[in-house]
């Protein structure tokens, strides 16, 4: 059998490999973090000079020094509004059904496999679908409504999966406690399951929206314009009925498309605009992720099973 000295040599060799791998792991992590830092710093160096109140309140222009992102950020917010209003009810309802109601049968299995597969469909394919279906079959045009719905479909799997996971985390005994007091299934869900899983669902929704906010490929595919020098009609008005839905049908641009437009131009001055728009977009994404982390942290702290 192996002698003690052999064993010591073997262990030494293994220890060396072990340490080498630990170093390799740290290097890999550092590569990721360094890249992220390089990206942020590069963006900041290029773009920070263009950041000014005027940049946020100006329309795009042929002159890079005068151009701004007003129509882009307004467009982004309106599109996100539509996306959230469409994706949240649909996704949460689907999640509730699959977790609380669905019986184990072939239909449920198909729905589950389908949702998993939808999460892996390239975003540009959603754009093609929206182009063929929303724009040309339903005649919704290249509008904010089309854009919002397209992104809603894109993030639907994220919302459904987040809903299911947070509902699944609620122990069955909570439901049984509600049933034991005579609650119906829906009452148990409405009074207990949903309120207790709100934190998780909200986190998923925000993560989904933060993904949607940076998406441009599907919106370019449906034919979003890149040069928009006007704002959509305001959603509220002074006269009856005080709300106005014309904005839904308005053409639009969004932050990432504006960025793409600028970065695609040969003039360096537009690249600076792109960097500045990138900074604003990163700030929006970061803010949403920050909120998501905050919500997740607090909802976990509040309820412990």
């Amino acid at each position: 059998m192996t002698s003690t000295t052999d064993i010591k040599a073997i262990i030494r060799r293994h220890r060396t490999r072990d340490a080498a791998f630990a170093v390799l792991g740290m290097v890999c992590l550092l590569v990721c973090i360094a890249t992220l830092m390089a990206l942020l710093v590069d963006l900041a160096i290029d773009g920070v000079g263009r950041l000014s109140p005027g940049f946020l309140t100006s329309f795009p222009s042929r002159f890079p020094g005068k151009a701004g992102i007003l129509s882009a950020w307004v467009g982004t917010i309106l599109v996100m509004l539509v996306t959230a209003l469409a994706a949240v009810p649909l996704g949460v309802a689907a999640g509730i059904y699959l977790e609380e109601y669905a019986r184990k049968n072939w239909l449920t299995t198909i729905i589950e496999i389908n949702i998993a597969n939808l999460a892996g469909v390239p975003s540009i394919v959603y754009g093609l679908m929206a182009l063929g279906l929303f724009v040309y079959q339903f005649h919704l045009g290249q509008s904010i409504l089309t854009a919002g719905l397209t992104l809603a479909l894109l993030i639907l799997p994220i919302v459904i999966i987040a809903t299911r996971e947070s509902i699944r985390a609620i122990p069955g005994s909570i439901r049984e406690a509600a049933y034991a007091l005579g609650a119906t299934k829906w009452q148990a869900i409405k009074h207990h399951v949903l309120p207790y899983s709100t934190g998780g669902i909200l986190t998923g929704v925000i993560i989904g929206l933060s993904r949607a906010i940076g998406e441009s490929a599907p919106l370019i595919t449906i034919g979003a314009l890149t040069f928009i020098a006007f704002l959509p009609p305001a959603p509220v008005q002074r006269t009856f009925p005080f709300v106005n839905f014309d904005w839904l049908a308005s053409p639009f641009t969004v932050m990432p498309i504006q960025l793409f437009n600028w970065v695609s131009r040969p003039q360096q001055a537009f690249h600076l605009n792109a960097a500045a728009a990138g900074l604003v977009l990163m700030a929006m994404t970061l803010a949403m992720n920050g909120i998501a982390i905050y919500v997740r942290y607090h909802s976990r702290k509040r309820i412990k099973w």
Partner: peptide, 24 residues
């Protein structure tokens, strides 16, 4: 400490990555 950075990396909009690829 590290995991939020990785999450952040996955949250960067792809156009920004495009900018980074082309100009950095």
């Amino acid at each position: 400490v590290v995991k939020p950075f990785l999450e952040l990396l996955s949250a960067v909009p792809t156009v920004v990555f495009g900018y980074f690829a082309l100009l950095f």
